[in-house]
Each structure stands twice: as structure tokens, then as C-alpha cells.
């Protein structure tokens, strides 16, 4: 990575030796700079990763101890209705929640960027604020808002003469969680898109305006295509975040213990397998499979947009 930048082009034979020494010194410096990160990366990520990969190949029972089991845990996962249901649930979450959140974020980013909305600074801050609220606190707060007896939402419904909706029932819990996650992360995604919008050269807009393009046309034909990489970034982040959903279901479980089961999300399932079922090995296998699922979905999404780009050009 570093060398193409440093390599002196067309160096004369006489200076070559010196250049090499120079180059070597710079390489050494580069590695030194990278070393702290690399050390932490290896110790905190790669080692645990390999260790859990190793663990996932064993089967431990409360009676009978630990045995090498090859890929038995993985095979078990593929026929585990609970795990598959969790992955399916997150797939549904992805298809519904992520587009809503990102379209909302994009709309807000464009609105603030257009400079037409008054108090854009305040709006930007307000939309971003939920992201600054810790996820745990946010979930507890929403849990209270959703409460069927004493929650404000239920009270409003009752005051209007309707029955109070049960927002924590089996049929509505996924929507309730989508709402929390959207509330939490719209601002975050908006900031990423907004930052990208700020970096588009303004000559483009001026030229478009002279050609008679309206704000919507500018947004659609210039701004959105220009920030496509940023949008892709938010999409990938959201995919990963969705499949790793954990805090929200684990905290809402106290309020809806029979609705959120142990395998509600794959991540939560892995945690429960390790700490309630005491099956660390199977939990490790689930965690690995989850990683693979995320990698595949992210890759497919990225690939499909790249193809579209290739076609478009």
C-alpha cells in the first residue's frame, strides 16, 4: 500500500542505493505506525475469532464432557428451526426497516442540504440527538411508551375512545422494534449522507440551475448519484446492524417475556445458547454462521449495485 506512494519515479542509477535505504526506513516507520492497531486487531479480533472457530468444532455436554465433532454444530444449525426463524425475522426486518430508515435519512439530508428549510441547524441536531441516547436507555424509554396500561400511547388511544393497542404483542413486536431502531439511527445515517452532500462541488448545481433544472431534478439527477458511495455505506452498515440486533430484544424481553423468545434474533440466540443452555460450542457455530450470512448479504447487495452502475455508464 505504502510503497507506490513513496517510490521515487525515474530515479537515476546513482541515487538508487540511497533511495532504497530511504524507502526501507519509511517502510519501517509505516509498520511502526500500524503496529499498535495490528497488535490490538490480532489480540482482540483474530485470536478470539480463531478460538471461537475452534470451539465451534466441539460438542460439550453437561454429562459426558467435550468431544471433537467436526461440523456437527453447523449441520445442526441448518436444521434448527429456531435459528432459521431468527434469520428469517431479521431478513424481514432488513427488507422493511432499512429502506424506511434510509429513505427518511436521505430525505432529511437533502432537505437540510438544500438550505431552504429554516432552522436547519437545529433540525440536524434534533434528528441526530436520538443517536446520542444510549441504546439501552432508548429501549427502556420506548418500553415505557409502549406500555399497555400506563404508557402514554395507550392513554392517548383511550382518551380518544379507542381500545389501547398492544404494541408488545406477538404480531406487533417486530414493528415496535423497527420503530425504535429507526428512531435511533435515522440521525446517524443522515449525518453520513449530509457530509457527502456537502462535498459535491457547487459548480454542478450552478450549471444545472442555468440549464433550468429545479431542486427536485438537481436532487434526483446530481445529488443522489453523487453520494451513492455514502448511501451504499449506510446500507452495508444497516445490514450488519440488523443481523446483529441484540439490545432491543434483550431489554424488551422483560416487558414481553413470552413474545420475545430466546431465538428472536440470531445474535440473541447465540448469547442465550452460551449462557442459558450452557452450550458454548453451538453458540460459537451460530455466531460464525451469522457472520457468514452477513458477509453474503452485504456482498450480494454491493455486487448488485456495482452491476447497475456498470450498466448505467
Amino acid at each position: 500500500m505504502t510503497q507506490s506512494v513513496v517510490a521515487p519515479r525515474g530515479a537515476r542509477p546513482g541515487t538508487r542505493k540511497r533511495a532504497n535505504a530511504n524507502q526501507r526506513r519509511q517502510h519501517r516507520a509505516a509498520y511502526l505506525f500500524v503496529a499498535p492497531f495490528l497488535l490490538v486487531f490480532v489480540l482482540m479480533l483474530l485470536v478470539p475469532l480463531f478460538y471461537s472457530g475452534y470451539l465451534s468444532l466441539f460438542a460439550t455436554r453437561l454429562v459426558g464432557g467435550s468431544q471433537f465433532a467436526w461440523f456437527a454444530n453447523y449441520i445442526r444449525a441448518f436444521t434448527d428451526a429456531d435459528f432459521l426463524a431468527g434469520v428469517g425475522r431479521m431478513g424481514l426486518f432488513l427488507i422493511i426497516q432499512v429502506p424506511i430508515m434510509l429513505v427518511l435519512a436521505l430525505f432529511l439530508a437533502l432537505a437540510i442540504d438544500s438550505g431552504r428549510a429554516r432552522g436547519a441547524g437545529a433540525i440536524r441536531l434534533l434528528v441526530f440527538l436520538p443517536y446520542a441516547v444510549p441504546g439501552v436507555v432508548a429501549t427502556l424509554m420506548w418500553g415505557y411508551l409502549y406500555g399497555q396500561d400506563f404508557g402514554p400511547i395507550a392513554q392517548v388511544f383511550r382518551a380518544l375512545g379507542f381500545g389501547a393497542p398492544n404494541l408488545l404483542s406477538a404480531s406487533s413486536i417486530l414493528g415496535s422494534i423497527m420503530n425504535i431502531v429507526t428512531w435511533e439511527f435515522v440521525g446517524y445515517n443522515m449525518i453520513i449522507m449530509y457530509a457527502a452532500l456537502r462535498s459535491i462541488p457547487s459548480e454542478l448545481f450552478e450549471a444545472a440551475e442555468i440549464d433550468g433544472a429545479g431542486q427536485f431534478r438537481i436532487a434526483w439527477s446530481i445529488k443522489i448519484p453523487a453520494i451513492r458511495p455514502a448511501i451504499m455505506l449506510t446500507v452495508i452498515f444497516s445490514i450488519i446492524g440488523t443481523f446483529q440486533l441484540f439490545n432491543e430484544p434483550s431489554l424488551l424481553k422483560g416487558l414481553a417475556p413470552n413474545v420475545i423468545d430466546n431465538a428472536f434474533t440470531p445474535n440473541y440466540y447465540a448469547y442465550n445458547l452460551a449462557f442459558i443452555n450452557q452450550d458454548v460450542n453451538y453458540a460459537a457455530a451460530i455466531a460464525f454462521l451469522l457472520g457468514i450470512v452477513i458477509a453474503i448479504v452485504s456482498y450480494v447487495v454491493q455486487l448488485s449495485t456495482q452491476r447497475r452502475e456498470a450498466k448505467a455508464s
Binding site: 478470539p48 478460538y51 471461537s52 470451539l55 466441539f58 460439550t60 467435550s66 439501552v136 441484540f246 439490545n247 434483550s250 447465540a270 448469547y271 452460551a274 449462557f275 458454548v280 460450542n281 453458540a283 455466531a287
Partner: peptide
């Protein structure tokens, strides 16, 4: 609250 929950590396075999 969830300290132990996420430190999966803490649970060894």
C-alpha cells in the same frame, strides 16, 4: 447491564 453478555471471549471451553 450486559457486560458479561457481550464478552463472549470470556467463556472458555
Amino acid at each position: 447491564l450486559l457486560a458479561v453478555t457481550l464478552v463472549l471471549s470470556g467463556c472458555t471451553a
